[in-house]
Design a protein around this nucleic acid. Structure first.
Lengths: 262, 262
DNA sequence: TTTTATTTTGTATTATTGACACAATAAAGC
DNA sequence: GCTTTATTGTGTCAATAATACAAAATAAAA
């Protein structure tokens, strides 16, 4: 679709959204020892933000978040969970003159029939429900929305300044992840179907921000009996090829309910 | 204030609220081994609900929840925390004919200038942000709002059927409490200033729904060094008077950040 | 002084964790 | 084959924590 068509269809959609409510998604992926999150760069602006969206009058907020996630990644059946709702008085575009300028630049380059209506929409105070998703980076094909020129992964430890309170959101999610690591399907969601034990350990290390003992980690994980070991692969190096594992989902989920233990 | 005045002032306030957003509070208190929560009975209706309210356009959602809590209990400086936001499509009054009937009974007995406006307000779909509070039951003087004939404590294990998804909210809070018991100022908030070790243990037992070994519980708690032992009191029985303890708040809060351990 | 129930302490047992290390294994290269 | 290399499966040891039970010390009231 062209920009113009997109602009017009968005403008029409505005009436179908609940006013004053938005969802924002912290979409986390993992690659080579580093956690990444999906961010959008606004068109012709040096402004980055989390993927977000609005809630249709006839859908649940969970559904709205899922829709956003799906539109930015093309994926379905992704792990997605609400973590906190943000409703401070600071959540308004006109909070700063910088934001107001951004809004003007935005309006100037789009093709809205009724610019006033769109501007008013964005100048509402939004209560935003924060969600986080876990997925395998290799599966996702980041897709920008019509207000953005780029949708891309960034290392969570090298994020640009983000719109409004979006940095705080990411910070809160990472905190949450650390607290809940033993109760979340971290491995299953962030890794490909088959992976090595070192991959799994690296994720835990990335989230906990500390290194773990290989032997002890392996012993604990294997003792929980939710990994299935496959025929070896992962060739190409002059050493013993690491085993590949996959999750026995049924057992894994049961283990997670009890927690994997500190 | 009379009912009529209350009705009219509420009606006027409607314009100052954010549309489609509400807060609901699960206010928890503890007494004699049992957790209680504050519920409201709607006027001349066999309908119970959690204390809730709406969000002024110029206040944060945290503030709105705090205002509701304050108005129902008369208390300030209470522990209050957001736990989850509820935004399913089922969150509408006209979901059932029973609800619609309730609304009619409600309207008939109130004195609104513009009944239509008020009715429309309540027939919105609300996204509700759930909060929970912990407080000492003896401090609070439950105060009904102008739509309710009663505001009272009920044992959480003997709750009446509640409006909309309010039962689910309480269920979720209790679950959350069990998970977070080692990180929340349970004792400080739910107990009076001075209490016995058995009081504290009973709260933990009430939340975890299982009995704990007295000796071990005492040893662990005392080892964390956040309790101050007072001159003995608690007289009146033909036995050794239990010691009274109080919290050294500074140390207690530090312990909670690390967690009290499984 | 006796009764009563609380509080303190002890102890034996069993799990859990962390740090370190070694032998077995298998792929690749020669 | 044999060597090199890094992975993998185990083993150990000490330190710490959790669990179950029980005896002894304590103090209030009768």
């Amino acid at each position: 679709m062209t920009d113009e068509k997109n602009s017009l269809s968005f403008e029409k959609e505005l009436d179908r959204f609940l006013p004053g409510i938005s969802v924002d998604c912290v979409i986390l992926g993992y690659n080579e020892g580093i956690l990444h999150t999906l961010v959008l760069k606004w068109k012709n602006l040096d402004v980055w933000s989390l993927p977000g969206g609005f809630v249709f009058k006839n859908e649940s907020i969970d559904n709205a978040a899922y829709r956003v996630l799906n539109q930015r990644t093309g994926l379905e059946n992704v792990f997605l969970k609400q973590f906190e709702t943000f409703g401070g008085m600071n959540r308004v575009w006109n909070a700063s003159s910088k934001n107001q300028h951004m809004m003007q630049v935005l309006m100037d380059q789009m093709h809205f029939d009724n610019q006033h209506k769109v501007k008013n929409w964005f100048q509402q105070r939004f209560i935003s429900v924060g969600y986080f998703a876990l997925l395998n980076m290799e599966d996702a094909k980041p897709i920008a929305d019509f207000l953005s020129e780029e949708c891309t992964w960034k290392r969570v430890d090298e994020l640009p300044e983000l719109l409004l309170d979006h940095s705080e959101m990411i910070h809160k999610v990472l905190q949450h992840l650390r607290n809940q690591i033993n109760y979340l399907p971290i491995g299953k969601e962030l890794l490909p179907k088959k992976f090595t034990m070192m991959d799994l350990q690296s994720i835990h290390e990335a989230i906990l921000q500390k290194s773990l003992d290989r032997g002890n980690f392996q012993r604990k994980i294997l003792s929980l009996k939710f990994l299935k070991r496959h025929e070896k692969l992962m060739l190409g190096a002059q050493n013993k090829a690491p085993y590949l594992y996959s999750f026995n989902e049924k057992v894994y989920m049961k283990s997670l309910q009890k927690g994997l233990g500190a």
